[in-house]
Design a binder for these strands. Structure first.
Length: 244
DNA sequence: AGGGTTGTTAGGGG
DNA sequence: GCCCCTAACAACCC
């Protein structure tokens, strides 16, 4: 579920509820839900891996984390794991095993929308500036930094690094400017490829290195190792990905 | 069958 | 306050 493109698809799937009225709400989310009935869902926004359900005065912030899921019009999991259920006049929405919080609408104004790789507001120059301030950071870590590449997750990280032929342990400060530009451009490009493939249920078959054992380019065995401060799984080819 | 994981936050120690 | 580590959360895939 949880990387940026999947959250965009989640938003797509819920847009039918916008402008509709809540009839009831329940679930084990730790916030007051009494205000929800009769509220109208005004809009839905995403920021990276987060989904915001906007109501008149407040918003509900959903983060699926690693294991979260949702369903529409049909309860698919046991009541006890139901985090939030919102019934609208147009149907029902179920969220499971996720983080669900109430946030003030002013919270939305503080978000740096330019950091979202899938947003129209995405600002590659700003990303470059942020990267320049981290010369000693590894590329495998900065790609997962949600303040720089909001929405990028571990799958996107591995695929991007293979596409630009860069070893995950390369230091930002050692990358030629051209490679930094490629890194920034590909983080966005691959996210949209991911989105389109996922929408068509063909994402996995397009993975080049993630969870794979041999390099699609040279046929050598891929390295699979937890690297960087983030200590997340990396899949990479020593021959085709250069260490800077 | 059971360890690993598409993720983040909170808290503690140094 | 910072960096770094750990635990907690808890479902599904191979």
């Amino acid at each position: 579920m949880p990387e940026g493109p999947s959250i965009l698809l989640l938003k797509e799937n819920l847009m039918n509820f916008v402008c509709h009225q809540v009839t009831s709400a329940s679930g084990n989310a730790k916030f007051d839900k009494d205000w929800l009935p009769e509220e109208v869902l005004v809009d839905i926004k995403t920021f990276g891996k987060q989904l915001y359900l906007l109501f008149e005065k407040v918003a509900i912030r959903i983060h699926l984390l690693m294991f979260g899921s949702y369903s529409v019009n049909e309860q698919t999991k046991p009541e006890k794991s139901l985090r939030l259920r919102i019934d609208f006049d147009a149907g029902s929405l179920f969220f499971y095993t996720c983080s669900a919080k109430l946030v003030d609408k002013s919270f939305l104004e503080k978000i740096d929308w330019e950091a979202d790789v899938m947003s129209e507001a995405w600002n590659p120059k700003k990303a470059k500036k942020k990267l320049r301030s981290l010369p000693l950071a590894m590329v495998c870590d900065v790609l997962l930094d949600q303040n720089i590449f909001s929405g990028v997750g571990n799958i996107i990280k591995n695929e991007v690094l293979f596409r630009i032929a860069v070893h995950p342990e390369s230091l930002i400060g050692n990358l030629p400017t051209k490679k930094v530009d490629e890194l920034i451009a590909e983080a966005r490009q691959y996210s949209f490829d991911f989105l389109n493939w996922k929408r068509d249920y063909v994402l996995k078959k397009h993975w080049l290195v993630h969870t794979k054992s041999t390099c699609p380019k040279c046929g050598e065995k891929l390295i699979r190792k937890h690297l960087g401060k983030t200590n997340r799984r990396c899949f990479y080819c020593l021959q085709d990905q250069k260490l800077y």
